[in-house]
């Protein structure tokens, strides 16, 4: 017997992401999902961003890693509350994990929540968490071809941060080429260039982010 059914396999996650969204709206929290491959500089950009934003907005962080709490400890050094999610092998955060982590945070005291996804340029793109904006970081040593090799993450993002621009001299990374490739994948992408080591370009990114927080939602 054949039964006709149309069941989206990711529908359960989408539903939980909408529930998270409602929770964030209720508490007036602006949420940023940070994605990148391992080592692109998610935590470094986060630390730099928190240094700029915490005087203006109460921030908190959800850290996603397969194991350990190295990143959460780096965040604690900046004096920002954080919750560590260990996915225990899973390659991405999903809305259910974020929902569970929220119970450890004092939501009434948070204006901006950063969710640092598991370092992976493929899987996290498929799982909405209830965020306002999605930011994907690409570091220059990874190569400018990553934009066309892993287009889903960039297509599904609102922002591209090209990080480690201080290293660009020594390697064959063409920033103009990267910007062109990025806009071909997603013409709506906001693109920023930063060096978390020198701090160059971080202001432009945090100023833009602050304007998004003020206007409430994504562009």
């Amino acid at each position: 017997m054949e039964i006709k059914v149309v069941r989206d396999i990711l529908a359960a996650n989408e539903m939980l992401a909408r529930e998270n969204r409602e929770t964030f709206d209720k508490h007036g929290i602006f949420v940023v999902d940070l994605m990148s491959s391992p080592g692109a500089g998610k935590t470094s950009l986060l630390v730099r961003t928190l240094e700029q934003l915490t005087p203006r907005y109460p921030c908190a962080v959800v850290e996603g890693d397969i194991t350990g709490d190295v990143d959460a400890r780096r965040i604690a050094e900046v004096g920002v509350p954080s919750v560590q999610i260990n996915t225990g092998g899973a390659c991405h955060l999903d809305a259910r994990m974020v929902k569970a982590a929220l119970s450890s945070l004092s939501l009434d005291d948070i204006r901006v929540l950063f969710i640092e996804n598991v370092g992976n340029l493929v899987c996290p793109a498929n799982y909405r968490l209830g965020e306002d904006i999605r930011v994907t970081i690409l570091s220059t040593p990874e190569g400018d071809d990553k934009l066309t090799k892993y287009p889903l993450a960039f297509r599904e993002s609102d922002v591209l941060v090209i990080n480690k621009t201080d290293l660009v001299e020594g390697i064959d990374f063409d920033i103009e080429q990267a910007r062109q490739s990025a806009l071909t994948v997603n013409a709506q992408l906001q693109i920023f260039q930063t060096s978390c080591r020198t701090g160059e370009g971080v202001d432009r990114w945090t100023d833009w982010l602050a304007s998004q927080i003020e206007s409430g939602r994504e562009t």
């Binding site: 039964i3 006709k4 059914v5 490739s181 071909t184």
Partner: peptide, 27 residues
């Protein structure tokens, strides 16, 4: 997947029609 550009007018303001499916349609 890396060319979200209209083939006719070359605009980048495009929406995905198909290609994101991950669904059971019948059993």
């Amino acid at each position: 997947a890396w060319e979200f550009i209209c083939r006719v007018c070359e605009s980048g303001d495009v929406e995905i029609l198909t290609g994101r499916e991950l669904a059971i349609v019948s059993l």
